[in-house]
């Protein structure tokens, strides 16, 4: 069985408040904060992109894994904001870690769930003894169209997971299950700067159907029940959807609280569920169980059953916890935010 041998998470320093964005577009900030439940979101610095965020998170994961870089047999980076259209982010990341040249590497894209898809690929490769260790990253510097509802949530961050054998793991991935269909809830065409979405269509037929499909599928496959888990993580496009899906599934409110970071950093897309899991791993105790369900538009969900081992306390002493980056913040104005995100014409 495969497990998590090391993990790391990173969020850029800059933040913009929902009320700052609302002011520009003449929206009522209270309505936005109540509706989406997002108070502020992270903004990347002008010299940060999905490759740099990936490297920051992966370096922490490597420190915790305590393995040599050349022991990595695979590197997969999931993102919908890869810096190049053609040239893998995974090549820059592998080189920056010193893992090159004897490994396989590629980029993945599946809206907000490419990071968890990368974890599944690494699990399969470890279980089949193709590789000893694999690195799975979810990273994004997401962009929302100016004035669109997505502008309040589209944020930047990354989390990295080194997958290896269970006997060296700080958390064992007991099993996984996925649920995938062709659902046009959200997309971005080639050469388009900003994504488009199906408005109300993003809820019931997309998020709720797929998250519940993967959640129930894994619970049934493992013959498990909610009571046996200490924490639940649901993908957080906003703060409303994960709370609503938890209620529908009968998951107690207090079991989703530790993973709920979207109100203070926004939706980091491919980084979303992996970052929430990192926040839970930063605090979880040996023996505790975590049930994780990601969601990516288009659409699909990956569910994981994770059990924390007694190796976690020693490993997480190294490197920064996610809270280090969440707490170290500086607010920017909308004008500066627009510059950092290159929203001005001619930049």
């Amino acid at each position: 069985m495969a497990g998590i041998v090391g993990y790391g998470a990173y969020v850029p320093k800059y933040r913009i408040k929902s009320e700052t964005i609302a002011e520009v577009w003449g929206e009522d900030p209270n309505r936005i904060q109540k509706g989406l439940g997002i108070m502020e979101k992270s903004v990347p610095a002008i010299d940060e992109d999905s490759a740099t965020l990936s490297v920051e998170s992966a370096r922490i994961a490597m420190e915790r894994a305590q393995i040599a870089p050349d022991e990595l047999g695979a590197v997969y980076v999931g993102s919908e904001s890869h810096p190049y259209a053609v040239k893998p982010t995974a090549t820059m990341v592998s080189q920056a870690l010193g893992a090159t040249p004897n490994l396989t590497a590629a980029d993945l894209e599946f809206a907000c769930k490419a990071g968890t898809a990368a974890m599944q690929i690494c699990m399969g490769m470890v279980d089949s003894n193709m590789i000893k260790y694999g690195l799975a990253i979810g990273a994004d510097t997401a962009q929302g169209r100016p004035g669109d509802a997505l502008e309040y949530s589209a944020a930047a961050g990354a989390a990295a997971y080194i997958i290896g054998k269970d006997d060296q793991s700080l958390a064992i991935i007991e099993d996984t299950f996925s649920y995938t269909t062709d659902t046009p809830d959200f997309w971005r065409r080639t050469k388009a700067d900003y994504p488009s979405h199906g408005g109300r269509f993003t809820g019931e037929p997309a998020y709720f159907k797929h998250v519940q499909g993967a959640f129930n599928g894994l619970m049934e496959k493992m013959d498990e029940k909610i009571d046996n888990y200490d924490y639940f993580i649901f993908h957080q496009p906003n703060a409303k959807f994960p709370k609503a899906v938890a209620k529908k599934l009968g998951v107690p409110k207090e079991k989703i609280e530790l993973g709920m970071i979207v109100p203070i950093i926004g939706n980091t897309y491919s980084g979303n569920t992996p970052l929430s899991l990192a926040n839970v791993l930063d605090k979880a105790k040996p023996g505790e169980k975590i049930f994780v369900t990601s969601f990516g538009s288009g659409a699909g969900s990956d569910a994981f059953s994770i059990k924390v081992t007694d190796k976690i306390e020693e490993k997480r002493k190294k490197g920064y916890p996610l809270s280090h980056f969440i707490e170290n913040k500086e607010y920017v104005t909308y004008a500066i935010y627009a510059k950092l995100r290159k929203k001005y014409k001619g930049m």
Partner: peptide
Amino acid sequence: GTFRKLLSDDPEGPIHYGFK
């Protein structure tokens, strides 16, 4: 040390990365 973009010459050119 941190890993950042150093320079990206033009929209169609390569992106240079490195330490800061």
